[in-house]
Simulated assay, not measured.
Amino acid sequence: MRCPKIHATYHTLRDTRGLPWPKDHGKKEDADLLDWPHAMFGFQKNNVSNQREHLILLIGSIHIRQISKHEQHPKLDDHVLDTTMNKLFKNYKRWCKHLGRKTSLWLPAIQQEVQQRKLLYMGLYLLIWGEAANLWFMPECLCYLYHHMAFELYGVLAGNVSPSTGENVRPSYGGEEEAFLKKVVTPISKIVQMDEAERNGETKSKHMRRRNYDDLNAYFWSRGCFRLGWPMRVDADFFKKRSNMCELCSSSTPQVCVRVCFILATVRSWAQRSRRRWWWSGGGSPEFLWLSTFSDGSVSQLR
């Protein structure tokens, strides 16, 4: 901590004024900003220690490159924090733009609280990332988790009231030790573990029913991922095994399956008739566009 720029970041993290701590939480004298999401969202203690050092060095390194070496007592300014946030949230902002959603990076109107809020947003992101384990292979899934947890962070600090309970907003998965690991990371990881068991031969299933990290992450590429809700619905399609889904349309809802499969069957039948007409007509010209269907019902265009 002898470097003035590093010390400036460390000193700014110690500013915990105005944070609503849980009633049953014994606040430490040396508590900093990362201790607050630890108490509210239930992150692991060692993860908090690691990401505290990570955040200090990350901001400090950018601070060193941007501030003159001749300053004896440099202060942490907004430009340094903005540069760090742009690098840290690059993928998250791109994800929000792709889905047509606004980011959850809401800043307070009071200027004195802006730096504190920015540090909390960055700290929350690093805490999610540090405890995600194999969910690192699902970056858009992490964006989804952060999107909702950052919005909850904003609601708690703004003093929002829940319309259903009439009480102040609280995190959906907080309130106990290691809540994030047990209630968020573990249920998602179990989906991959079940499919890994099938892949290793412990249970038998068709290859198309198995899902890996890329398949699960693709769920968060469309706006339909928000049907998963927050807190996440355990009956959502995301948590269902492929064995409960239709092999043709991958739907687990009978009403949807009937409609989608009817459309796919109609297209397949039309494609087969078109191919037979093309065959009996002698092949046609090279510009003739025809459709080829496969045994799994998929359709491809060939020239």
Results as ranks from 00 to 15, higher is better:
residue 199 R to T: 13
residue 187 P to K: 05
residue 232 M to Q: 10
residue 177 E to F: 13
residue 214 D to F: 13
residue 212 N to M: 12
residue 231 P to M: 11
residue 175 G to W: 13
residue 221 W to N: 07
residue 188 I to M: 07
residue 175 G to I: 15
residue 202 E to I: 12
residue 195 D to P: 01
residue 225 C to E: 05
residue 193 Q to N: 14
residue 200 N to C: 08
residue 174 G to N: 07
residue 200 N to H: 10
residue 219 Y to L: 01
residue 175 G to S: 12
residue 222 S to R: 14
residue 220 F to D: 01
residue 195 D to W: 03
residue 191 I to K: 04
residue 197 A to F: 05
residue 212 N to C: 04
residue 201 G to T: 14
residue 202 E to R: 03
residue 174 G to H: 01
residue 222 S to Q: 15
residue 179 A to F: 04
residue 179 A to T: 04
residue 230 W to T: 00
residue 202 E to Q: 07
residue 227 R to Q: 09
residue 203 T to R: 05
residue 186 T to D: 15
residue 186 T to F: 15
residue 175 G to E: 12
residue 172 S to W: 06
residue 207 H to N: 05
residue 186 T to W: 14
residue 189 S to G: 10
residue 183 K to C: 02
residue 205 S to P: 01
residue 206 K to Y: 08
residue 197 A to P: 02
residue 181 L to Y: 09
residue 187 P to R: 13
residue 193 Q to H: 13
residue 229 G to Y: 07
residue 222 S to K: 15
residue 202 E to K: 07
residue 211 R to N: 04
residue 181 L to P: 01
residue 202 E to P: 00
residue 201 G to K: 04
residue 207 H to M: 07
residue 215 D to W: 10
residue 190 K to W: 06
residue 203 T to M: 11
residue 218 A to G: 00
residue 216 L to A: 06
residue 222 S to C: 14
residue 198 E to T: 11
residue 215 D to S: 06
residue 222 S to A: 10
residue 221 W to E: 12
residue 228 L to G: 06
residue 194 M to N: 11
residue 208 M to C: 10
residue 206 K to Q: 07
